[in-house]
Design a protein around this nucleic acid. Sequence first.
DNA 1: CTTAGCACTCTAACAACCCGAGTGCTAACA
DNA 2: TGTTAGCACTCGGGTTGTTAGAGTGCTAAG
Lengths: 345, 345
Amino acid sequence: MEMNERKKGILKAVINEYILTAEPIGSRTISKKYDLNVSSATIRNEMADLEDLGYLQQPHTSAGRIPSDKGYRFYVDSLIDVEKIPQSFEEMVRKKYLDRKKEVQDIVQVTSRMLSHLTRYTALVASPSSPEYFFQHLQLVPLEGKKVAVIVVISSGIVQHQTVTLQNRPSRQELEYISRLINDRLQGLPLGKIGNEIFRDLEKDLRDRTIFRELYKSLVEFLSDEGISQEWGKIHLDGATNILEQPEFSDLEKVKVFLKLFEQEEMLKQLLNKIPSQGLKVVIGKEVPLEEIRDCSLVVADYSFQDKTVGKMAILGPTRMNYPKVMATVNFMAEGLSKVLREED
Amino acid sequence: MEMNERKKGILKAVINEYILTAEPIGSRTISKKYDLNVSSATIRNEMADLEDLGYLQQPHTSAGRIPSDKGYRFYVDSLIDVEKIPQSFEEMVRKKYLDRKKEVQDIVQVTSRMLSHLTRYTALVASPSSPEYFFQHLQLVPLEGKKVAVIVVISSGIVQHQTVTLQNRPSRQELEYISRLINDRLQGLPLGKIGNEIFRDLEKDLRDRTIFRELYKSLVEFLSDEGISQEWGKIHLDGATNILEQPEFSDLEKVKVFLKLFEQEEMLKQLLNKIPSQGLKVVIGKEVPLEEIRDCSLVVADYSFQDKTVGKMAILGPTRMNYPKVMATVNFMAEGLSKVLREED
DNA sequence: CTTAGCACTCTAACAACCCGAGTGCTAACA
DNA sequence: TGTTAGCACTCGGGTTGTTAGAGTGCTAAG
C-alpha cells in the first residue's frame, strides 16, 4: 500500500481541518466539508490506511484522527499551497520600519514584534552577529573623576561603549596618546586577533603603563565574546503570551515549562544555533533539538547583511501550526529585514 | 466592639497561616497550631467579630476565614515582625554586584534578577531617571560613507550613542568644528534646556548649515524624552513566571491578564509612577492603581543617587504575599542598589 | 472498489451522592 | 460575664453511575 492522490487529498484535508479546530477529525467531517466525491466510509478506509502508514494517529479508539509528526512533515514538504502575503501586510511592515530609529537593536526588536503580531505565535529574532567584525575606531572620553568612557566603532558602523574606572585620574593628553596608539595599530583588524601579543607589542612605546593596561584590558574584554557577541546575537523575543491562546496550552504545567524556557536566553540562542541555516526551514515536533518543547514546531529563516548570513529568526508554536501562513510570513520578514539592513548600509 | 490584644493575636495567626497555606483558615487550626490558650470556640467567636470589623472574610459559609484587604493593611501596619536579612543573602548580593560590568543597565538588571530570586515573586526595577541630567560632552565619529556616530556623555558618566546617516559625506574637519561648537555652548546645560533657541543661536556661526542641522536635530531628538528617558526609566522585569507557582494563579485567564500586562512596559512604568515615593511602601489589593491586578499587592521602595531619589523597585505578588520577608528584602535591595550606585560614582 | 448499515467503543458531560471541614448557636460552667 | 463543650446545619469538592454522541471497523450488497 502506498500514497495515492486521494490519500494525499484526505491527509491534506485532515491537517487543514485540524489546524483550524484543534479537535480530532472524523471521516464524516471530511466528507461533508471537502468535495472529495467519496463517502465517509471510503474516507474511513483511507484514513485507516494513512494511520498504518504513520501519517495520522488516533488519540483513542472512537475518536477522530490527528496528524502525526510524520504527517506534518509530509504536509509541509509536499502538500502545502504557498500563501501570498497580503498587500496590507507589506505596507504595514514598510511603515513600521520607516518610523523607527535606525539602531540595529531597534530594528530587530520591531521585527520580532511584527512577526509575533502577524502570526499570533511566539517570535524569536537573533540580532546580527558575525565573526567577521573588525576594529575601526577607538575613542576615549574622560568623565568625572577617574572614569573614562571607552567607545569603540566596529565595522558596519556598530558602536559600543563602556565606562571604566581607573586607578588614577588620567590627563587628556594621556588618553589622546593612548587612543592614537591603539587606533594606529588596531585599525582594520578582525576582532578575534586583538589579544595579548599586540598588547605587549604596544606596551613598549609607553612611559606610564598602568593606565594603558587598564584600558586595554577593558577593551579586550568587551571586544571578546562576553562583550560584543552578548549584544550581537542577543535574542529578541515577542508574543510569549500568544501561546496561551492555543488550546494545547490549556495545561498550566506546559505553560510553565514554556515560559521558564523563555527566561533563559542562553537556551534560546543554542536552540537557534542548532538549526542549520538554509533559507526557510521547518522543524517539527520530535525534530526540535530541545527536550522541553518536543510538541512544538519551529519555522526558521536566516537573514543576511552584505551577502552573508548574520542572523536567524523563528516562529515557535504548537505542531498544529498554520504552516502556510507562518512560512510565508517568516520568509517575508527575513527578506524584509535583510533589505532594511542593506539600505541602512 | 473594638480591637483588643487577643483579636490582634488571632488576626496575625490567621494571616500568617493563610500566607503559608493559601487555604481558608478554621478556628481549630488556629487553636491547635498557635498557643493562644483559648479553645476553638472562643476563637470562633473572635473570628466572627473580626469579620464584622472587616478584617476577615468568608469565601462561603462553612469554610474558614481569609484576610480581607483591610486585614492585610492592619497586619502590615501594626502586626508585622520585621524580618532580618540572613547573612548569606548579604554575601550573595555583594558577590553578584562585584563580578558584574559596571554599566548602570547591567546593575539594574542584576538587581531585578536577585529580587525575584530572593522573593520568588515578580520583580520590577525602574532604571535611574532624573530630570536633572546635564550635558557633558559630544563626540562625533565618522563611520563608513555618510554615517556618523553621535556619542553623548551626560552627567554621572552616562554615555549614549546613535548612528546618523547624513545627506553628504562629512569631512573630519567639519565634524570637529561642529562638535567643538556644540560642546562649548552646551557644556553643563540641563538636558531640558537644549532646544531650538540654542540651535538658531549656534547656526549663525556656520558656513555649511545642512550637516549641522541634521546632526543637531538628531542630538535634540535623542536627548529628549524619547531618547534618554526611554533608556533611563526603563523597567527591568524578572521572575514573571514565578506567579505561576502561586495557587491564586491556577486560573489561566488570570495568568493571561498578568503576562499580557508584563509585555506592556509603558503600563508598568505608569504603575510605578503612580505610587508616591517614600521609603518603603506597601500597596494592597484594591489600593493598586491598576484595574487588572486588583487582587495583587506591591511592595515598593525607591533608591537614590547623589542623595536624590532616582528610581523605584517593586515586588508584585498576590495579596497573600509573605510581607515580612518581601518588605525586608525590597528594603535591603533598595539600600544595596543605592550603595552600589554611590560607589560607582 | 465503493458504500450503506450496524454493532461496538470510548469520552465528555451531567446528576446524584457522600464526606468532611467548618460554622453558629445553645446551654452549662467558672 | 466570659469561656467552652456539644451539636445541628451548611456547603463545596470529590466520587460514582449513567447517558448521549461522535466516531470507528466490519460486513455484505451494489
